[in-house]
């Protein structure tokens, strides 16, 4: 050890070469984060007669590394709304604190928190759009579930660009490719949501989560599921995907250790 604390704990130049500081940009235009770091994958949701179900798995990945395996990506807002987050986890935490501050503010009134899921979705979409217009996006794709002002089930998405989209069933990320076709087959377009029961909706989401776990390498088999009805929110955060069958994997060739 030498007498220069500034160099303590640094990789030795004689071993690793001189430190390359070029990534620490000191000139040029101001830049913001342009890619997510720790991410959550799909969020899936279905409306049913009298409510909405939302589900995510409990994984936060760092690139391809399964970094955190108990991350709760369904966040509750007030008595009747849930936001499911895909994308950057730190941005999710920022938005979660934002939602908490709004909830505290709403509860100043004697009437309590009167913002419904639709109001919340409108707000979040505006936040996303403002941030992307500043070239400093919040790297998320969220589903907002709950009820609208008339008490009808509400499910809508908003993404990092401020894009909004609504449908009786929705999925973000990998789920947009893998879960939506399954949900469309189960609940065809012409089928009114009044004909979908809570049990059907929950079991459809569980099946989707299983397929996503099979095929999405950024997922795990621990998940959270929230059922939002007029009676309140039934949130389970430590569920396990049941009834897995990896028999199909035997037929997959070209990956792993086997060569033929």
């Amino acid at each position: 050890m030498d007498h220069f604390p500034g160099t303590w704990g640094r990789p030795r130049n004689d071993v690793y070469g001189a430190y390359d500081p070029t990534y620490l940009q000191t000139t040029g235009p101001k830049t913001h984060t342009s890619s997510p770091a720790v991410t959550g994958t799909s969020v899936i949701g279905v409306k049913f007669n009298g409510g909405v179900v939302l589900a995510t798995d409990n994984l936060a990945s760092y690139g391809s590394l399964a970094r955190f395996t108990d991350v709760k990506r369904l966040r509750v807002f007030g008595d009747n709304a849930v936001v499911g987050f895909g994308g950057d986890v730190s941005d999710m935490q920022y938005i979660d604190r934002l939602l908490e501050s709004i909830d505290i503010r709403e509860n100043y009134s004697t009437h309590g928190n009167m913002l419904n899921a639709k109001n919340l979705h409108t707000y979040l979409a505006k936040v996303f759009y403002k941030r992307r217009s500043e070239f400093n996006p919040l790297w998320n794709h969220v589903l907002v579930a709950g009820f609208d002002v008339d008490g009808k089930p509400f499910l809508s998405s908003a993404d990092l660009l401020g894009t909004t989209f609504s449908a009786p069933h929705l999925a973000t990320g990998f789920g947009a490719h893998l879960a939506v076709p399954i949900l469309r087959r189960r609940f065809p377009e012409e089928m009114p949501i009044e004909e979908i029961t809570r049990e059907e909706a929950v079991s459809a989401l569980k099946d989707c989560l299983k397929v996503l776990f099979y095929r999405d390498a950024r997922s795990i088999d621990k998940y959270s599921i929230a059922v939002i009805t007029k009676e309140g929110i039934d949130l389970k955060e430590d569920e396990q995907i049941e009834g897995q069958s990896w028999a199909f994997a035997e037929r997959i060739r070209g990956y792993g250790r086997q060569t033929n």
Partner: peptide, 12 residues
């Protein structure tokens, strides 16, 4: 109305 799509509560 712009940010929340909600008429402002009177007490607020």
């Amino acid at each position: 109305k712009m940010t929340y799509g909600r008429p402002i509560p009177l007490d607020r």
